[in-house]
């Protein structure tokens, strides 16, 4: 196994040591100080640590470091550009989906991975994606509405640009 692992995080090439063995979430939080992904259970249950790895939403607390070489990771910190929010973030706010906010970064990245690959995702598909996430505050109603609103806004943005990408 290589001594170092090189991968791209939010558009920047990063190199981290392959040892000691640890997980993507440890690297993001403890080493790169990208603390937007949260540690809620550390065993892949709660979804607060979800980031996008090569286009797929993954629970970063169970992705071992050796799987990262050559990959591309997008975290919540890379979703907006520092000024304008991404439509998913905007929609979650508008729907009232943000309460304590601990689950929200993971949910936003889940929806991003889903709608980037499947903008026409059915309600059942969206439900299955959100079902990977725990939230103790909202009762999910506003999160559900926020997800539908996000899809709608992303769709209208694509339509304005003239068709699907």
């Amino acid at each position: 196994m290589a001594e170092y692992i090189a991968f791209t995080v939010n558009g920047t090439e990063r190199t981290v040591a392959a040892r000691p063995a640890r997980f993507l979430l440890d690297i993001l939080r403890d080493e790169l100080h990208l603390t937007g992904a949260k540690r809620g259970c550390d065993n892949g249950t709660c979804g607060t640590c979800v980031v996008v790895l090569d286009g797929r939403a993954v629970k970063s607390c169970i992705i071992p470091v050796e799987k990262l070489d050559g990959t591309t990771v997008l975290t919540i910190e890379g979703l907006s550009d520092g000024k304008m929010l991404h439509p998913i973030q905007q929609a979650l706010i508008e729907a009232g989906a943000v309460q304590c906010g601990f689950c929200i970064p993971g949910i936003a990245m889940e929806l991003y991975a889903l709608f980037e690959t499947e903008l026409d995702a059915t309600e059942d598909r969206i439900r299955r994606a959100l079902n990977r996430h725990l939230c103790r505050c909202t009762g999910y109603e506003a999160i559900w509405e926020g997800a539908l609103l996000a899809q709608q806004q992303m769709k209208s943005k694509v339509e304005k640009r003239g068709g699907h990408k």
Partner: peptide, 17 residues
């Protein structure tokens, strides 16, 4: 709209850990 929504939805809100 809650004043802390943007900080939370961008992952910039600082929690204990």
């Amino acid at each position: 709209t809650r004043p802390d929504a943007v900080g939370k939805v961008t992952g910039k809100a600082i929690f204990l850990d």
